[in-house]
Structure formats: C-alpha cells, structure tokens
Write a protein that binds this DNA or RNA. Structure first.
Lengths: 189, 189
DNA sequence: TATATTCTACCATTTAGTAAGTAAGTCATC
DNA sequence: GATGACTTACTTACTAAATGGTAGAATATA
C-alpha cells in the first residue's frame, strides 16, 4: 500500500500515522524525524510550519479516501456489498495499531485549527455522507423497502455511527465490538 | 451548576473545560493558571503531575455524569422522556462553547494515557450503555414493540450514535444537525 | 504557633522554527 | 568534455518560548 519512497512521502505517511494515534497536539517534528531517520530541519525544508504539514497530510488523506470509495464502486455493484466495504475501510484503520480515522481525530481537536483546515475536515465528512447517500439511493431503487427518513438524513446516521464506533472501540480496545455493531446496524437497513 | 468555590474546584473545572475543548495534549498548567488567576506552582500544589490532575478531572466528570443520569431517572418516568433528556445532556455540552464530552475527547487521545486512566474512560462508556439498556428494558416492558437485537446491542448503538454525532457537529459547527439526527434516530425506536 | 495555601524563582527538556553550510546533482555554455 | 552557475536535499547548530516540575520563601488562616 504505502511505498515510502521519497523523504517527502515518508514524512507525510508518518505524520498521518502519528496524528491518527496521538493527535495533532500529541506529536512533534522530532517524533517524525526519529522514526524515519532524518533531522528535524529536513522536515522544515518540506513543510516550514506544522500547520502546513498537517494540511498536506489532511488533503492527501481526503484524496486517498475518496479514491478508496471509488475503488469500492468499481469493485462491487450490490449496494449492500458497497456498504460492507465502507465499514471494512474504517475497520482496517482500527486494526492497524488501533488508530482512528484522521478526520475523526482532527474533528475532536478542531478548536486548535484555523478555518481552512476546518473546512477540509468538514468536507471529508460531507464527501463520506454523499457517497453513502448515493449507495442508499441505489439500494432503494433495487429494493421494495422504502424509508420515511430522507436518504440524506439516513446517510448521516450511518456516518455518525461509524464515527462513534471508532471512539468506543478505541476506549474498550476490543475490535470485535465493531463487527458486532456493524452487523446489528446492517440488520436495520 | 458550577460554583467555582475553592481553588481546587476551579482548577478541576477549568482543566475539564480545556480538555473538552483542546484535548489533554492541547492544554498546559500555564493555561489553567492564567484563566483562574493563580500561578502554575499553585496547581502543582494540588496536583503534582498532569496525569494526576487529569485523572481527578476524569473521575469527577464520571461521577457528575452518573449523577445526571440519576436525576433524569428521578425526574421522568416515561422511557422516551428519559432518552430525550439523555440526548439533551450531550447537547448541552455542544452548546457550551462547542465542547464535546470529556470521555469522547479522551477516547480519541487514549494512546497518550496509562492503563488506569484508560479504564476510567472505558467505564464511562460502559455506565452509559448500562443506563440506556435499563431505559430500553423499561420501554420494551410498557411497549408492544419487540426488537430482535438484544437490548445490550441496541443500547450500544444508541451510545455509538451520540458519540459520533458530537464529532460531526463539531466538524460542521452546526448544532441544528444534532437535533435533526436525534429526532431521526428516535423515530426508529 | 502551627498548618495550609500560594508565591517567587528556578530547572531541564521539549517545542516549533531559523540560519548557514555542504554535498550532490542539473544544466547550459565554452 | 570540462567549467561554472544554480538547484535540490539535506545537515549542524542554534534560538526563543513553552513545557512539566521543584525548592523554598512568604503569606494567610486556624
């Protein structure tokens, strides 16, 4: 998945991992430098300030995530399969050293960021919701079940669920809970 | 609600607010000192280390929250009213300077804490879930609707929802979303 | 007087960030 | 094909401020 080619890409990768694990206020340039074996100043060469770094990390993440959703669309035609893959996407983050979605973490820390970064975070959630909504529309079309809630509201509920599930699983440390909750949620659809 | 009596209580109150807004890694002793108009060293007099402080804040919060749930039980008899008050409890946190639940924030930052603090965080969620489960049991008893999901699983879904909703509302900055989502959720019960 | 509380003054370390230098590569020109 | 100008990618060495934390003096309060 991650090639860790250039120094720049390694900085972005490790920066992302550290934020997902410890948060924006919980990591330093020194942490990244030590992990990838370069000097602090080399990171400043690519990203003069910490906020510039985190913004690059964020935009890269959003792009990659959208690409993942696109891949799911390509791979599956059944809406339910798409939703399952969506939840699996979030599960993989939890599996991997018990991290959480970058934007979940940054949403919690949002008071530490300027408006441009806040906008990027919010856009991530909007894009997620829009994608879910599209899948639900596809599902409703091929289905006989119709919902009273608008698709927009229903997709927001699903997104809300997956965001909250991450926090609970992180608190308990038991990833099996995630599977159980996802299964219970899918039953209600 | 908060009397801000003694110095110790003011330290705990402001510590809590700062964590809810910026996270454990996002505030310092100097911040608290400046806000309540004392010197850093005075905080160390009460709480020698930052982790001791945050642990005291956490345990106080958990106790207060349980007390809030107890108050709800006293005030309402209808299970649905109880649930609405539960969601209102979380809403009040969002209203107040757009903070989130202390344990939501600390769950995100959980990798920064030793096991004893992690346990306290997890216990908060378990207590929440248990309370919801009790309310759902009461609701099912007085109701004709029966659910296929176990009450345990269903209560976890509700808790998951309210945790995720906080993150989304924080990202968008629009608290009305919270009300809409809660209403949509209550419709499904 | 004794005890609890708060302060001044410090410490070592870490923080984000800067300045200046260096080694290696690119590239046009003679 | 060698020379010099410029660029890229990094390092060493530093700074000022902030961090959590401590020792001991000063001040209340009982």
């Amino acid at each position: 998945m991650e090639k860790n080619n250039s120094t720049l890409e390694r900085i972005l990768d490790e920066g992302r991992h550290l934020i997902q694990k410890y948060g924006y206020n919980g990591f330093s340039y020194a942490d990244i430098a030590e992990i990838i074996g370069i000097k602090k100043a080399s990171i400043h060469y690519y990203f003069p300030t910490k906020q510039e770094l985190v913004r690059a990390v964020l935009q890269r993440y959003n792009k990659e995530f959208l690409n993942n959703l696109y891949q799911i669309d390509q791979q599956f035609s059944d809406p339910l399969d798409k939703l399952k893959s969506f939840f699996l996407l979030y599960r993989r983050t939890l599996e991997n050293d018990s991290k959480i979605c970058l934007c979940s973490m940054m949403a919690a820390e949002i008071s530490s960021f300027p408006e441009e970064i806040r906008d990027d975070i919010n856009r991530f959630f909007l894009d997620n919701q829009k994608w879910i909504e599209k899948v639900l529309a596809q599902k409703n079309a091929s289905d006989d079940s119709s919902f009273s809630d608008s698709l927009s509201e229903q997709s927001r509920l699903l997104l809300t669920f997956v965001q909250g599930a991450q926090l609970l699983v992180r608190a308990s440390g038991e990833i099996d809970q995630y599977d159980t909750m996802v299964n219970n949620l899918l039953k209600t659809l």
